[in-house]
Write a protein that binds this DNA or RNA. Structure first.
Lengths: 473, 473
DNA sequence: ATGGATTTGTCCGTATGTATG
DNA sequence: TCATACATACGGACAAATCCA
């Protein structure tokens, strides 16, 4: 064996054994030391390199652990034979490369009428902090292990209680499943029901994101046109779908509330065909003027309705908690199927939410937010009326955190949105919520008002009017 | 209605009304009391059960509040008609019996050697609280809206930095995806890659939960037997799989480290077949004696390795954060495919974790935990040696939070586990991690030591020895 | 072939400067 | 601030493998 003395730098930041380890690893990987070679003995090397025995030993042990060397007891360390190392580039140097440069934020529009932004000023930060702290204190034992796969029982009990009382949902804690989002929940149902549900009906227009989830899971998606009062049950019948996705509380995007008669027809469809109804209680909490309508699930007598909802609008979209209420037959399958998955929601956050509900903050908060959003909606309605008058008509006023503006202009929704952006206002075309071509005579745009103050709303609408109808007035 | 008199135990720890509540709840959920049944009147029941009126009343009120009963004024309490309770299992579905649903406390084994429990006493609760509070303060603006779909950028940057430095992973923040768990990540990859990956190879024995996820997504799963140093690349080649799932840092469950030669063979397989490698860096942080070994992904030069790991062992399984590092070609597909999904992890918790990493707590914590678990492992090894001597041999010592005990007994792993449970000790057979029949000559059981103190470990092992080998000594 | 000298990996107690809490 | 713990480095003790007279 020729000379093979690594040059070590006592001054270097890297430890001596680290330098030694790296030297030999690179010699081996580059093929300069061929397989089968006996490395210098510990004692020999420590003398020639001028370091202690254990320094060499530590380096050799590491190479041994990683499989570069094998040790023959009291004989020596040998480079493993198993593979030809020649030609492998040396590993990238460890350590720091670049500084963290957060990606350049796109120029945020001054007035963003997004439908999912909430009113931050009303978020009960203090209370939420308290709940989090108490959760960490009271339930610190939870941190050691996975929790209930369906969600912490006490949280599910609180959700069930709330749903029974406020949303007329029939629910016991055992039916409730807690998850991280509506789309995730729909995805999990797709996988669960894939064997039985090949064809799923959705509202046309409807929630495009949900449609994509169905499609990604290989389901055939049938658009069922909306009538005045929700989707056409007649056409649903003809579709041959095994499941239908509906938003009876507040149709997305058009905002109609499904009347009781149509709800009964829908349930009758389910009963007679054995079909499943996936009820998204979208914006159910925020209903203005009109009386609450019982949830579809609450009217159901045959366990055909899967009820889904979330805390994104009423609490925060950043908190990532949704819930499902499953009928018995689906629940049994769900439990068996998702047996191996830990619940995806942080246990502490579940506990915080549980405390938030248990202490009555939730109901208080909902009541408060109803007022807040009612005022914002009023501001938006008034601004729209004042600025646009007959140039637009307004849909989806009964509930929710957005309106639909039907604009009497010879332009597409996309064009109008682009014009708006140029003026610093972001509004949202609804065309992607159609599977077929959008049919309304005039373009319709979605304007969410949750994240803007009444003043911002008024200013935004003024800008919008000047951008869209510069000549009027 | 026939006699229905619960037997109450005045001496029990549980309150009388609690026992009553639980009794009826279980009767209803199990279907032994059918929907619509009138329960015995308060007065009647309090006489027959020998308790006071208010005890019964409290129990009924609780059941009422939770939706099991409805009260008809001046008539009585009835089991609700709406939900068909028949067939609801009171106990959680098969699987983790140690997950306690509060109303029905399962008998927790005194010494639970579960592989995923962490050392709670070492959890940095104070620091974590501080991070959470600061996150809520500093990033309260995040609460108004959804975050980055891949995870908050600064968190991904911190994860990338850590992985580069400590795990020799080649990672920039743009490749990192944050999620709620390893299985969820694998599931999302299945959906994403379904078109290209029909057949996936896994280690035999391997991680059964992961196998089930693959199967649920319709992939054909090919078990590839383990050799001394990890799965057989020869047989992998012959399998025709388009993807392989491996745990090179610490094979689950047997604990071997994949040596460099086999890593290169594996990468060569990927290069020559265009296959993908899914590297789960399982327990990579907890290596005893030598430093952690570099990742497989770090050796890859062709973007064939998907790297996945999580914070469950090293921080807490209750916190639900995992991460993936995707090769660029996969990353592009991922972004396009999951475009509509909000990131499932709570933004505040992401921020807290980000601060935890940024302030160096993470590296500190890892170093600390390595010591803690090293001590526990030593205690377990010593106890096993003292109690069992040659009656067992020990595998998987190099790393991780568990050992494998090969028990020289003419019984199956399941039998041994059952005997252990009867003695108050829970250990885990490994047979379900095999697809084919388990081949080892002797039964092998998994003993996790993360959640037990050295004393508990010793006591548990003593009990185990007496239960398994009562005649020896 | 052999026995003793030497070399070798392995184990272990210790010293020291640095980082940690 | 200070005590402690830790990573790193050092060298002695031991026993097995190897070498060689």
């Amino acid at each position: 064996m020729a000379e093979l003395i690594p040059i070590l730098d006592e001054q270097a930041a890297e430890s001596l054994y680290g330098q030694l380890y790296r030297f030999f690893r690179e010699e081996i990987l580059s093929g300069r030391i061929v397989a089968g070679t006996k490395l210098p003995s510990v004692r020999h090397l420590c003398r020639s390199a001028g370091v202690s025995k254990s320094t060499v030993e530590t380096a050799y042990q590491q190479l041994l652990a990683e499989g570069y060397l094998e040790s023959r007891a009291r004989s020596g360390f040998y480079v493993v034979e198993a593979v030809d190392f020649a030609g492998w580039d040396v590993l990238p140097a460890e350590g720091e490369a670049e500084v963290v440069t957060p990606p350049v934020a796109a120029v945020a529009p001054r007035y963003n009428f997004h439908g999912s932004v909430i009113d931050l000023a009303s978020f009960p930060l203090g209370v939420w902090k308290k709940c989090m702290l108490e959760a960490m204190e009271r339930y610190q034992g939870d941190l050691a292990f996975y929790g209930d796969k369906l969600g912490e029982y006490e949280l599910r009990a609180e959700i069930a209680r709330y749903l029974r009382q406020a949303r007329t949902v029939q629910a016991v804690p055992e039916q409730v499943v807690v998850g991280t989002g509506l789309l995730q929940a729909v995805g999990s149902l797709c996988l669960l029901l894939a064997a039985d549900v090949k064809k799923v009906a959705i509202e046309e227009p409807g929630y495009a994101d949900v449609r994509e989830v169905f499609e990604q899971h290989g389901m055939e998606v049938v658009p069922v046109p909306l009538e005045e009062d929700g989707l056409s049950v007649q056409l649903l019948r003809e579709s041959g779908a095994q499941m239908v996705y509906v938003t009876p509380a507040h149709q997305y995007p058009y905002g109609m509330i499904m009347p009781i008669a149509k709800r009964m027809q829908l349930l009758e469809w389910a009963r007679s065909t054995g079909g499943l109804i996936l009820e998204n209680d979208y914006d159910g909490e925020f209903r203005y003027k009109v009386k609450p309508v019982p949830s579809l699930q609450g009217l159901d007598q045959h366990g055909s309705v899967i009820y889904v909802s979330n805390f994104s609008k009423a609490l925060s979209p950043a908190i990532r908690v949704n819930y499902m209420v499953l009928p018995l037959k689906v629940m049994e399958r769900y439990r068996a199927f998702y047996q191996q998955y830990a619940n995806p929601v942080s246990r502490i956050e579940q506990r915080a939410l549980q405390l938030f509900l248990q202490n009555g903050h939730w109901e208080r908060h909902i009541r408060k937010m109803r007022k807040v959003y009612e005022r914002k909606q009023a501001a938006l309605l008034q601004a729209v009326e004042e600025e646009f008058g007959d140039l637009v008509s307004v849909l989806a006023q009964a509930a929710g955190l957005h309106l639909i503006l039907e604009v009497k202009a010879e332009r597409s929704g996309e064009e109008l949105a682009a014009i708006a952006v140029a003026a610093g206002v972001k509004v949202y075309p609804t065309t992607r919520n159609w599977i077929g071509a959008a049919k309304p005579a005039w373009p319709r745009l979605l304007l969410g008002f949750g994240g803007l103050s009444p003043e911002e709303i008024r200013e935004g609408i003024q800008l919008l009017r000047h951008a869209w109808f510069p000549d009027e007035r």
